[in-house]
């Protein structure tokens, strides 16, 4: 399975999480992000870990998919680990080379940051794994609905997001091809001196942007031809239904939050 497709892709196992209202899942995830960011002890992260793994297990989606969701950011995590580890000078010195030294406290903090990030990435993937993009969009629209009063248009925002999610992979594919085409004309980013690289970037960006505009124009024609008008009323195929399970789902996160705050 390739990474690109994992972005915004649901894996249907029909678990109870899949059946939840997208709004409850979005709310739950937002709470989860806050809880993770507020957690600052091993005890707390331990509690979160137990909670997360239980919830993930009940989705019946193999754990490896969750891990794969974090994989694209592995280098960032490694980077954070190294920077955090080396910047904190607390506790016993475990290892030193010249001006660099690794302290026990640093190692602890580095590991802590990476674990937090790992849970953040794997657990929030649950949202896209258990919700089809359409339902996700509708859920987002629902969550944003209260902001209508502030002059915000949830339909526009979700339309924007869904079109972006739809076209980003297509445009990335195309950028790859243009990269290869220019490399075939002797402009290989890997083999050129830095000064030339800037010029190369133009040869990549101009075609990619030109093509994105072309696509946008085509898309507008296609949407208008299908009768689309901004802000016109629409019916919905998938309905949002808030049930007892949804309340329970959100409540679980609230309880987790309180527990973490009390610890």
């Amino acid at each position: 399975m390739n990474e690109r497709l994992l972005l915004g892709r649901s894996i249907d196992t029909g678990s109870w999480v899949h059946k939840l209202d997208a709004r409850s899942k979005i709310t739950g995830m937002l709470l989860y992000v806050v809880i993770i960011l507020l957690s600052n002890s091993w005890m707390e992260i331990g509690l979160i870990a137990v909670f997360s793994i239980i919830v993930m297990a009940t989705t019946r989606i193999p754990l490896k998919y969750f891990i794969k969701a974090a994989k694209p950011l592995r280098y960032l995590m490694l980077f954070i680990f190294i920077v955090q580890s080396l910047s904190v000078k607390e506790g016993d010195v475990l290892w030193s080379l010249g001006s660099f030294s690794l302290h026990e406290g640093g190692l602890r903090l580095g590991a802590f940051s990476v674990i937090r990030m790992l849970f953040l990435l794997t657990f929030t993937a649950l949202l896209t794994f258990t919700t089809t993009p359409g339902k996700l969009n509708q859920g987002l629209e629902g969550v944003l609905a209260p902001f209508k009063k502030l002059g915000l248009s949830p339909d526009r925002i979700t339309l924007m997001i869904s079109i972006a999610l739809r076209f980003i992979p297509t445009i990335l594919d195309e950028a790859q091809i243009i990269l290869k085409a220019q490399a075939s004309r002797g402009a290989d980013l890997k083999e050129l001196p830095l000064k030339e690289k800037a010029r190369m970037l133009v040869s990549l960006l101009v075609p990619v942007i030109a093509s994105a505009f072309r696509r946008a124009q085509d898309l507008v024609y296609s949407m208008e031809a299908r009768g689309f008008r901004m802000d016109a009323p629409r019916s919905r195929y998938h309905r949002l239904r808030w049930g007892a399970a949804d309340t329970l789902f959100v409540a679980m996160f609230v309880v987790l939050g309180i527990a973490v705050a009390l610890l």
């Binding site: 993009p133 359409g134 079109i163 696509r215 898309l219 296609s222 949407m223 689309f228 016109a232 195929y237």
Partner: peptide, 19 residues
């Protein structure tokens, strides 16, 4: 590619119908 509005086949077909 440029006239596929939804993120899935179902969504794309529903786009016009919901409208």
């Amino acid at each position: 590619d440029n006239q596929f509005i939804g993120q899935t086949v179902e969504e794309d077909i529903l786009f016009g119908l919901e409208g």
